[in-house]
Every structure is written in C-alpha cells, then in structure tokens.
C-alpha cells in the first residue's frame, strides 16, 4: 500500500462505507424496526425528532453518549467493556471494505473466512457487556447468548462460505468476488439455502424478536444490558444497530445480488440496492413483530434446524456444484 491507498483505507473505515455511514444506516434500520413494531402494536412509534421521527434513534444514542456514566458498582470494569464494544464497532466498519460499495476493495482468496473472523468481534462485544456486569441478569443474558452462539456462529460461517464457494469455487471462496459475480442457475440452490440460513443468523445476531432471548426485558430486566447506562449503553446501541444493518446489507449484496438485474455503474442500480435493503429489514421486522420470544432451548433448537442444518445443505449444494457439475 502506498500513502494514498492508506488514506483511502482510513477514509473507507472511518466514513464510507465504514463507521459513520454504517452507524447512520444502523439508526435508519432501528427506525424501521421501531416504526413497524409500533404499527403492529397499534402505537405511533418515534415521532418527535426529525420528519416522522427519523432522527429519534440518533438523538437517543447521542443523549446516552453525552450522559455521565452511571457507576453501578466498584466491580464493574466499564472502560474495558467499552473497549471491547468499540472493537466490535470497528470490526463491522472494517468488514464493509469487502463489499462492492466501498471505494477501496480488499479481496483475497478465502476472505469469506476473514469476514467470519472479523464478525466475531461484534459478538464478543455483546458477550463482554453482560459478563462484565455485576448483575446476575447480565451474566444470565450473556450465558444465554453463549448457548445461541454455539449454533449461530457455525451457521453464519458455513452459509457465508458456501455462498461464496458456489460462485468462486471451494478452494477460493471469496465473498468480495462472489458479490460481483454473475449469477447462474447452478448457484441458485446454495444461494437460496444459504440465504435462508443467513436471514435467520441476521435475526438472531441482531437480537430480533423470537431470538431476543439474551436481553429478554420481561424475564431478565434487559439481560445483557440490565446494569448498563450512559456512554456504554450508547455504544451498545450503536453496535446493535450496526450489526443489524451490516447483516442486512450482506444479505442484500450477497444473496439478493445487489443491483441485479442492473449493474453498479447504473445509478438506478444503487436505488435498487436501497429498495432491496429496506425489503430485507421490513421482512425481518414484520416477522419479529408478529412473533413472541422463544425460550432459550426452543431458540437454539429452531436455529439448529432452520439455520445450521440448512447452511450445511447449502455447503453440500456448493460442493456438488464445484466437484460434480463444473
């Protein structure tokens, strides 16, 4: 890398499509979730800040970031936790550089596995916030999250790998190349199966309704965030929103093929990406607003059946495509 490339890299991580863009997209995602959930429950949802309450999530987060930290107990190492949550935020920001919307694109063989590795930092942030808490609710929330991780992370890894492998081959499996590859009939089985698995992974990792078991408000008083307030809660909200936005964007670009049938060169293609993104978020929110929370063993069983097994089927389809068809 020369100096211009380094500057471009830093710009991409910090501004577009990294931290600032992704966090704004995350607040927009949260706004859609809150509006749709409110509609389903016969409420109005956010209305106060901005047109139709569009800037309400931003105002909420800024208020939390500017409030002084509420030190609940001497045993709560909130600075360490803040660092771990911040690494999660930066990991999601850096991972956007694998997407075709980035001005600088880092592409290597097997970068799907690098993406899986980087995505784990955000999960670590979620875990740290509960385990560092002195409250038993936080610890119970994080231990529930650990149970879910045992199913969700392998499902995420296998589905991302198998979709990438169906486009670029089992030994290459480049997620950045798979996003811009031409889609053919032979990729469809792995794409559909992997897409279903990835959709459930998105709902589980961004703690949407049937899978919001770790933060269960009514049983655990907020679970992993039961004892958290101030800037740490603000950073958690940013991480949570960015996770949802990132995974919805990954689904849009990888599974729904971004601007397909148009191209990235076409301005209408970018509009189409936006429409597909909103469609993904709306679908997930509609499902989440119409379902109740599962118990932890039900959640793990459901994710195992419809996310992990389906992702393994997608891997089989990708392997069949690579070793038999091609």
């Amino acid at each position: 890398m020369n100096s211009i490339e380094v500057l471009l890299y830093l710009f991409a991580v910090a501004v577009f499509p990294g931290f600032i863009f992704l966090s704004l997209l995350g607040t927009f995602t949260e706004w859609i979730e809150r509006k749709v959930a409110a509609r389903a429950q016969n409420r109005m949802g956010p209305t106060y800040v901005g047109p139709v309450g569009l800037f309400q999530p931003i105002a909420d987060i800024l208020k939390l970031l500017w409030a002084k930290e509420l030190v609940v107990s001497k045993g709560f190492s909130w600075r360490t936790t803040l660092f771990l949550v911040s690494t999660g935020v930066m990991a999601l920001s850096a991972a956007t550089l694998l997407m075709p919307i980035s001005p600088i694109r880092l592409s290597t063989p097997l970068d799907s596995l690098v993406l899986v590795y980087v995505l784990f930092y955000s999960t670590l942030g979620f875990l740290a916030i509960g385990f560092s808490s002195p409250s038993p609710f936080g610890v119970v929330g994080s231990s529930r999250m650990l149970s879910m991780i045992c199913v969700v992370e392998p499902a995420a890894a296998i589905s991302i790998y198998s979709i990438s492998a169906s486009f670029t081959g089992m030994d290459t499996a480049s997620v950045s190349k798979a996003m811009i590859a031409e889609v053919g009939l032979q990729q469809l089985p792995a794409l559909i199966l992997g897409g279903v698995a990835l959709f459930l992974v998105m709902m589980a990792k961004s703690l949407m309704k049937p899978f919001d078991i770790p933060e269960a408000e009514t049983e655990l008083a907020g679970g992993i965030i039961a004892d958290v307030g101030g800037p740490l809660l603000g950073m958690f909200r940013i991480l949570h929103d960015m996770e949802a936005a990132f995974l919805a964007m990954l689904l849009t670009l990888l599974v729904l093929r971004g601007p397909y049938p148009l191209s990235y060169a076409d301005p209408l293609g970018w509009v189409l990406i936006g429409v597909k993104f909103v469609a993904v978020v709306l679908t997930a929110t509609a499902i989440s607003a119409s379902l109740g929370r599962l118990r932890i063993e039900q959640g793990v069983a459901l994710l195992g059946k419809y996310s992990l097994l389906v992702s393994i089927a997608a891997l089989g389809a990708a392997a069949l495509n690579y070793y038999v068809v091609v």
Partner: peptide, 9 residues
Amino acid sequence: VIVGGLILA
C-alpha cells in the same frame, strides 16, 4: 479493529 477500537473507546 484493535487500534480503531482503542481510539473510539
């Protein structure tokens, strides 16, 4: 991730 997370925190 590490350096950026440190700066952000």
